[in-house]
Nucleic acid binder design. Structure first.
Lengths: 331, 331
DNA sequence: ATGAAAGCGCTAACAC
DNA sequence: GTGTTAGCGCTTTCAT
């Protein structure tokens, strides 16, 4: 295995003690230049690599971060993972990717795996059913920092890195008003979802405050199919919306399907605007105007917070990334 | 850390030796039922968890698989990862996800990381520039099994799990012929890519053999944008294609954009068929007919091969997953 | 049926 | 400047 070169082996070859070799490799000041040179030469010749597990055993820590995601197959989450991976690599960290599948039981098992792997820290987006986060808090006390991202516990005091949900919804609403749309169909996800609970009120408020005359119809859809159906229904009415707002990529895909089917001209007949992670809107023509909530940026921020935390800056923080309007021509 | 319960701790509490405790926990036949019971009770009370690193250190192996992907942000790869993750979890394996970004240097670094982490095996999709795979072969000799998937070395003898590229291209071609299309625009990716080199000849051959009268135009596109441009150009000609074949999701997105822009009726005016990993085609109306090359299935197969390999079935194999036609209404 | 001891590879406190 | 020793937590051989 691994060529199997160990400190012991090098020590024997050079008739030195193991500790001398260890220190030489670490440029310990006590060791003579001469010895250092001999040791390093042989080490590189033998392609010596320290045994990670021996080190982990001693330090009870590993250079691995646990990343718990509800599901990998979502543009948002894998762009998050990608970003953590890139940042981590620079500092010698690897990633343990764990899927919770929105199941609190799996989530706890994953947390346990993080403990068993003595991870240096955990990034977690909690499931929609996670109510108790004591386990995470406890984990943080006895094991390693926990950074919550995206789906975070609502009340507890902990490190949270958030998409700018309110800001994004606000920006979309403002853009709609700016474009003088009067008849808004706004599609949101499941009412229980935390992102819905954030995006919806922020969205509504802008209209109430800035354009109370707007006719605003709020609908909820739990899947692209539901979004399709709801939209189809609304478009069949006499008074059609002049703009459709989609809370997420998932909803956008459902809406766009019926738009294509009915061959509705965007933005001439009906405009479209969405909140998105940034890939889906570019698939259509015209490209859909959207407010971006980027997994990549979120990842960078979460990673930085983790590094700070590890470096001892253990104060609690709640950070949001900035939302960004990307104009596509659909509004 | 971890509540910190160790064998030693349990042993002391129970006035037993460490080895007795270790054996009791493993149901070793030598140990009396009485002792087993006492040990197990205390262990579960203390939430004893064996220290992974100590075990890894002794066994020089870990229950972790390395997964090297060119990029996480591709539906194909993350569905592959997802599938490996699910299968692995059942057997107690975790995943070390490494991105090569299509860079051979990063690829080698990732392989090294796999070695340092004493992974139980490596799944790798090589970069387009990887020419030497000695390192992988060497790794396999000294460390752990290597399963190549998707992008695999062409000539070397090694375990390969492949998408059914030829079969998929063949099926698409046959479907086109079956639908009596006479004027085919076929868009392929970069000529150097191994999937292009497999899909293109298989696709062409079917027409030559079964429908030589078909007018077949082959074009290459390296990006959605290029696919868009090429398609736009071809659609502006007098003799328009009656069907467009897209080698990949990437190309499909480019093609669909211009189709939407020109408001071309699918399949009435022009039909579309693609080879796909299965998500993108469902975004459009009508849904695009495609031949599926599923990352998920590939993952399952690759995982099974890995398990077999670890179980000692070290013979070399080259396996392809079956392609599947999914009808969407676009052809 | 149980215990003692060695060793996996590494680090660090403590000699000399 | 270099060596000795103990120990991280676990498994396993060899006693008893």
């Amino acid at each position: 295995m691994n060529g199997g070169t160990t400190l012991k082996y090098i020590a024997e070859k050079l008739s030195l003690s193991i500790s001398t070799v260890s220190r030489a490799l670490k440029d310990h000041p006590d060791i003579s230049e001469e010895t250092k040179k001999r040791v390093k030469e042989l080490a590189s010749l033998m392609e010596y690599e320290p045994n990670t597990y021996a080190i982990n055993l001693r330090t009870n820590q590993s250079k691995v971060f646990g990343v718990i995601v509800p599901e990998i197959s979502s543009y948002f989450y894998h762009s998050f993972i990608e970003s953590i991976e890139e940042e981590g690599k620079k500092q010698g960290y690897s990633l343990l990717i764990l899927q919770s599948g929105d199941d609190p039981v799996a989530e706890m098992e994953n947390l346990k795996l993080c403990r068993l792997n003595r991870v240096a820290g955990v990034f977690v987006s909690i499931t929609t059913h996670t109510t108790h986060i004591e386990n995470f808090l406890h984990f943080e006390e006895i094991a390693a920092p926990v950074i919550f991202y995206d789906k975070v516990p609502e009340f507890a005091a902990c490190n949270k890195i958030l998409s700018a949900d309110e800001e994004a919804a606000t920006m979309a609403a403002e853009e709609i008003i700016k474009k003088k749309k009067k008849n808004v169909l706004a599609l949101f996800g499941n009412k229980e979802m935390s992102i819905t609970r954030k995006r919806l009120p922020a969205f509504e408020r802008i209209f109430i405050e800035n354009a109370p005359e707007t006719k605003l119809i709020i609908e909820h859809a739990n899947s692209p199919e539901e979004a399709y159906t709801v939209t189809k229904h609304m478009l069949s009415k006499n008074e059609k919306p002049d703009v459709i707002f989609c809370m997420s990529d998932e909803i956008l895909t459902g809406v766009m399907k019926i738009m294509q089917q009915l061959q509705i001209k965007i933005p001439d007949t009906v405009s479209v605007i969405a909140l998105s992670n940034g890939f889906i809107p570019t698939l259509y023509f015209p490209e859909i105007t959207y407010v971006e909530t980027s997994g990549k940026k979120l990842g960078k921020l979460a990673f930085q917070r983790m590094i700070d935390h590890i470096a001892g800056k253990t104060f609690i923080q709640e950070i949001s990334i900035r939302a960004k309007l990307v104009s596509g021509g659909s509004l």
